[in-house]
Design a protein around this nucleic acid. Structure first.
Lengths: 243, 243
DNA sequence: GTCTATAGCTTGATAGAC
DNA sequence: GTCTATCAAGCTATAGAC
């Protein structure tokens, strides 16, 4: 596991080279185009997503934001408070976009009526577009979501708290589209979808390596072209077979 | 994110109450039925799986094993060395079982010849059985695999190092079973499967909560009854449509 | 709001007795 | 092999000047 060592050493190395923060002496209050509070949130988002909660320190986040560590505590009370603020910040945006996209689809599904693939694509679309086209902040945010989704102990509860209402809306829609589908099969199918979606967000580089460069997990067009069809087939296979 | 706080406080609390290690004074060498080295590995497996690399300390692992922190360094040189040893220990067993299971299937697939569902089930079977019936050590190990699989930076490389040859065997088999399938579609399909499998291993409790108690991610029979059929349908859907 | 300074602990790791 | 003792460093968090 050499890569692990490298990643960690890189982090340690960064922490070593001090006195390099580009602070302007004559302008202590709210610098650049974002407030200091937002700059700390942005840095926390990027670094927590990359190294996890325990793998990153308040000092390093503050340093990356060009702020003092004490300022992070001033705004967010604790390291956990900072993490929570980061996780919460963009959740509402995703939820709203997903909900609207699904409503739009069911109210006008096109000729032939609503399909599982159509609804799943409507569910996936907004998050995938923010992920691929929303800039580095959104990329980092979804990587953080991936991390939390796979975290034992508190990961499930946290995901539930922020995202479950929208998921229930998706399940409800699929329940109508696949008549007779049992709830257990619908929930298991979503479980599988959730795993694939967050692994995509994680961007661990495994797919790229495994495929010898043929496939790239960051390739938005490639995911978008396959994902809804793949999972719709899975949903229908087990819901129809077991109904 | 209250659960996060709770989980962490629990860990901190544990670290507080000292002088409670049940060590027998008259028997310092290799205690109980496992060697001290193995006891440390077992404790590391359980605790790294639950809290991640950065979320657990060498001291706590040693304490849980009933050993001295210095002993962990004696055996494994560093915290990273201990983690690597844990991750490596069971990988060969899984790989061998998976490979044999797939060879057994392709050499005698039953009437009608080999199917995607059959091969995927042969691939999934051994790991799922070890996970469900191999005891707490195996449960913890697979939770650790789930964690690594979703770890940015070094997760992909680590997974590749230990597991990719067997995955390539699976892809190769599916390539024959689904004639004309493009490699990119096969690799993307495996990517989706990998996400669902490791999310199952992670046992975050999310499925249980989301389904209101209808489905449980630890329910071996339930996963086994659905997983191969679900992913076989996905594989075939995108490989056939895009060939 | 922002920074300096520092309290109070915990960390990974090692030296050396047994 | 195992333990005691300890170091140097880093950690979260806060008090208080500006």
């Amino acid at each position: 596991m050499l890569e692990a060592k490298d990643a960690m050493d890189a982090r340690v190395r960064t922490a070593k080279k001090r006195e390099a923060a580009p602070r302007r002496a004559g302008r202590p209050k709210s610098c650049d185009n974002a407030s200091m509070r937002e700059r700390i949130l942005n840095a926390g988002e990027r670094l927590f997503a990359r190294h996890g909660f325990h793998g990153m320190t308040v000092r390093e986040v503050a340093k990356a934001a060009g702020a003092d560590p004490a300022l992070a505590h001033y705004y967010f009370k604790s390291k956990q408070g900072l993490f929570d603020a980061v996780f919460e910040r963009r959740a509402a945006v995703v939820n709203k976009a997903r909900m609207e996209s699904m409503e739009r689809y069911v109210s006008d599904p096109g000729p032939g009526g609503p399909t599982a693939e159509g609804l799943i694509d409507a569910f996936l679309g907004p998050a995938m577009e923010l992920w691929a086209k929303g800039g580095p902040g959104w990329k980092a945010y979804f990587r953080l979501v991936a991390l939390v989704n796979n975290t034992p102990q508190w990961g499930g509860a946290t995901m539930a708290k922020y995202f479950d209402p929208v998921i229930q809306r998706l399940i409800e829609g699929l329940r109508k589209i696949i008549p007779g589908a049992k709830d257990a099969d619908l929930y298991w199918s979503y479980h599988f979808l959730s795993g694939g979606l967050t692994l995509t967000f994680a961007e661990t580089g495994r797919l790229d390596r495994l495929s010898g460069g043929i496939s790239h997990s960051a390739d938005y067009e490639a995911v978008r072209a396959r994902m809804a069809a793949f999972y719709a087939a899975g949903f229908e296979a087990i819901c129809r077979a077991r109904r």
